[in-house]
Design a protein around this nucleic acid. Structure first.
Length: 487
RNA sequence: CGGGAAGUAGCUCAGCCAGGUUAGAGUGCACGGUUCGGGACCGUGAGGUCGCGAGUUCGAAUCUCGCCUUCCCGACCA
C-alpha cells in the first residue's frame, strides 16, 4: 500500500519513517490518550491516557512518600506582589504567565498569576511556618495543574495547562539540600528506567538552560525513537535565592538567624509523551507493562452458529479471569459483532503488552494463543497454569522493552572530540553526542551554532572529561556534555 | 510571535478555480442477515449551522475581509 493510499485510509496511522511528528499525533488521538480542547494549546486527557498517568503518578507518589515527603496543596492563583520578589525568577517566567484580571464581575485590585510553578506562594506561606532549626527540614510535594503560555504547543510534550508534581523542600545546610536534589533526581531516574523502561542520562544543566532562580538544575534526558532528546524530570538547587528574597529565617541551635537552603523538583505529564515516543511503533503505542492500564487483553473467538464451541471458549475465559484474579490488569474483549482482527488491531494501537486469544481450535488441544505486543511474537501455550505465568511474562516484556530502548540509545550515541566531529555526527540523523566541554557560555553559543537546532542537554553526571580539550575552545574541560536536538 | 499548509458527517477527503435543485464518497455509527483464528460482506437507516463573523450578490461550501483552531518550518520556552 502506498503512502498516498494509507493517508486516505482513516484506519491507518502515519508510519514513523514517513513522518515521526505526524505518527505521534495520530497515535495519541487514535489510541484515545488525549484530544485537543477548544482552547488553544490545551488538551483533554481521555480516560485511557489518564489511567496511564495515574499509574505513573502512583509509582512516583510512592517514591516521594518513601523518601519522607508529605503531600499538600496550594492555590493556583498567585498575587502579583508575591510573584515579583525574586528577580531572575520573575524575568524567566514573565512571558509565559497568564493573569487573572477580573473576578466577581469586577476588575481585581491586584492581578493574580495562574501558577507557572509555585515557589513564590510556597515561600510566602513558609515564611510564617519556619521559625526554628526544629522546623527543618520541610519536605513537601503537591500534585497540581500548571499554566505556561507557550507559543508552540504539542500534545503532552508542551501544553498551555499541564499536570505535574512539584516537590519543595527547605533544609538547614547547603549540603543537605544538594543531597535532596540528587536523591529526587534519582527517583525520577528510577521511575523512568524501572517503571517506564526508558533509559536516561542524568546531569546538570548549563547556566542558560537552568531554572530561573536556581543555583543549578539537574535533569534526566531520554532519547526518543527519532533520536531527539526529551528532558523528562528536573531537580533544582535553589540555595538561598528564594529564602533571602522571601525573607524566610529560622533560629539555629546557636540562636542566630539563618536563611534555609531550598530545593524544588518536578515531573509532568510530558513523560507520557516520552513513553509514547520511546516505545511506540507503526501499529501505535507499546506500553511498559508496569504502567499499562490494561496489561493483558483476552479475545474470545466465538461463532454464533457454534454454541458448543462458544461455551467451551467462555468457560476457558472465565477460568483465566478467575485464576488471574487481581495479579494482572486483565480485560476480556467480548464485544459482539466485532471481528477478532479488528480487536487485535485496536489493542495493538492501544499498546496492551499481552494478548491471549481463546478459540475452540486451540482449546481442543487444551491450548490458547499468546501474542506479545513488543515484537508480535506469537505462540500457543497450555491453558493449564497460564494465569500464573502472566506476571512473569509481563516482567519479561518490561525488561525486553528496556533493553531495546537501551540498545537504541547506545547505537545512536557517539563521542566527539571536536566541532568537526560534532557536525559530522549529526550529518545523517539526530544522535546523542558527548564531548569535552568547558561550560563557558560563549562555547555553548558556538556549539549550538555548529549544528541546526542543537542544544547542550546536560553536563553528564556519569562522565568526566579529565582535562581533555573543550571541543569549542580547546581549553582543558571539566565536563563531558551531552549534545542533542531536543523536544 | 514570523513564514507555509489546512479546516465540508465521529474519521479521511471530494466539491470551490469558472456562485445556482434537497452538499457527496469511503470509513465509522445503529438495526437485520450471512459471517467469525488478522481491520469481512449484503441490505436498511441515522448523522452536516460546509471552523466563526461580517461583506458582495436575486442567490455563497464556492468570491472578499476579519477572527479562531490545528499541522509543518523558524524564533522562544519545560
Amino acid at each position: 500500500m502506498s503512502a498516498e493510499q494509507k493517508r486516505a485510509d482513516p484506519k491507518s496511522i502515519t508510519p514513523q519513517s514517513e513522518d515521526f511528528d505526524r505518527w505521534y499525533v495520530d497515535t495519541v488521538l487514535r489510541a484515545e490518550l488525549a484530544d485537543y480542547a477548544p482552547v488553544r494549546g490545551c488538551m483533554v486527557i481521555r480516560p485511557y491516557g489518564f489511567a496511564l498517568w495515574e499509574n505513573v503518578q502512583r509509582a512516583l507518589d510512592d517514591m516521594i512518600k518513601r523518601t519522607g515527603h508529605s503531600n499538600m496543596y496550594f492555590p493556583m492563583f498567585i498575587p502579583e506582589s508575591f510573584f515579583a520578589k525574586e528577580a531572575d525568577h520573575v524575568e524567566g517566567f514573565a512571558p509565559e504567565v497568564a493573569w487573572v484580571t477580573h473576578g466577581g464581575g469586577r476588575e481585581l485590585e491586584e492581578r493574580l498569576a495562574i501558577r507557572p510553578t509555585s515557589e513564590t506562594i510556597i515561600c510566602t506561606l513558609y515564611r510564617d511556618w519556619i521559625h526554628s532549626w526544629r522546623d527543618l527540614p520541610v519536605k513537601i510535594n503537591q500534585w497540581a495543574n500548571m499554566c505556561r503560555w507557550e507559543k508552540r504547543t504539542r500534545l503532552f510534550l508542551r501544553t498551555t495547562e499541564f499536570l505535574w508534581q512539584e516537590g519543595h523542600t527547605f533544609h538547614a545546610t547547603d549540603e543537605e539540600a544538594g543531597g535532596e536534589v540528587s536523591e529526587m533526581l534519582g527517583c525520577y531516574r528510577e521511575l523512568a528506567e524501572e517503571w517506564l523502561a526508558i533509559p536516561v542520562i542524568p546531569g546538570r544543566k548549563t547556566e542558560s538552560e537552568k531554572f530561573a532562580g536556581a543555583r543549578y538544575t539537574e535533569s534526566i534526558e531520554a532519547m526518543m525513537a527519532d533520536g531527539w532528546a526529551l528532558q523528562s524530570g528536573t531537580s533544582h538547587h535553589l540555595a538561598q535565592n528564594f529564602t533571602r528574597a522571601y525573607d524566610i529565617t529560622y533560629s539555629d541551635r546557636a540562636n542566630t538567624l539563618q536563611h534555609p537552603f531550598q530545593t524544588s523538583w518536578g515531573l509532568s505529564t510530558r513523560i507520557i509523551g516520552g513513553v509514547i515516543m520511546v516505545h511506540g511503533d507503526d501499529r501505535g503505542l507499546v506500553l511498559p507493562p508496569r504502567v499499562a492500564p490494561v496489561q493483558v487483553v483476552v479475545v474470545p473467538i466465538v461463532r454464533s452458529n457454534d454454541p458448543e464451541g462458544t461455551a467451551l471458549v467462555e468457560d476457558a475465559v472465565r477460568r483465566i479471569q478467575a485464576e488471574a484474579g487481581s495479579s494482572v490488569r486483565l480485560r476480556v474483549d467480548d464485544r459482539e459483532g466485532m471481528r477478532p482482527g479488528e480487536k487485535y488491531a485496536e489493542w495493538e494501537l492501544r499498546g496492551v503488552p499481552l494478548r491471549i486469544v481463546v478459540g475452540a481450535k486451540d482449546l481442543a488441544g487444551g491450548q490458547v494463543t499468546l501474542v506479545r505486543r513488543l515484537d508480535g511474537e506469537q505462540r500457543t501455550t497450555p491453558l493449564d497454569g497460564l494465569a500464573a505465568q502472566l506476571p512473569g511474562l509481563l516482567e519479561e516484556t518490561q525488561h525486553a522493552l528496556r533493553a531495546r530502548a537501551q540498545q537504541r540509545l547506545e547505537e545512536r550515541s557517539v563521542d566527539v572530540a571536536s566541532l568537526d566531529e560534532l557536525v559530522a555526527a549529526f550529518a545523517e540523523r539526530p544522535v546523542f553526542a558527548s564531548g569535552p566541554f568547558c561550560n563557558d557560555p560563549a562555547c555553548e553559543v558556538r556549539i549550538k551554532a555548529a549544528v541546526h537546532a542543537l542544544t547542550v542537554r546536560v553536563l553528564r553526571a556519569d562522565r568526566s572529561a579529565d582535562g581533555a580539550p573543550c571541543l569549542a575552545c580547546g581549553k582543558p574541560a571539566d565536563h563531558v556534555a551531552l549534545f542533542a536536538r531536543a523536544y
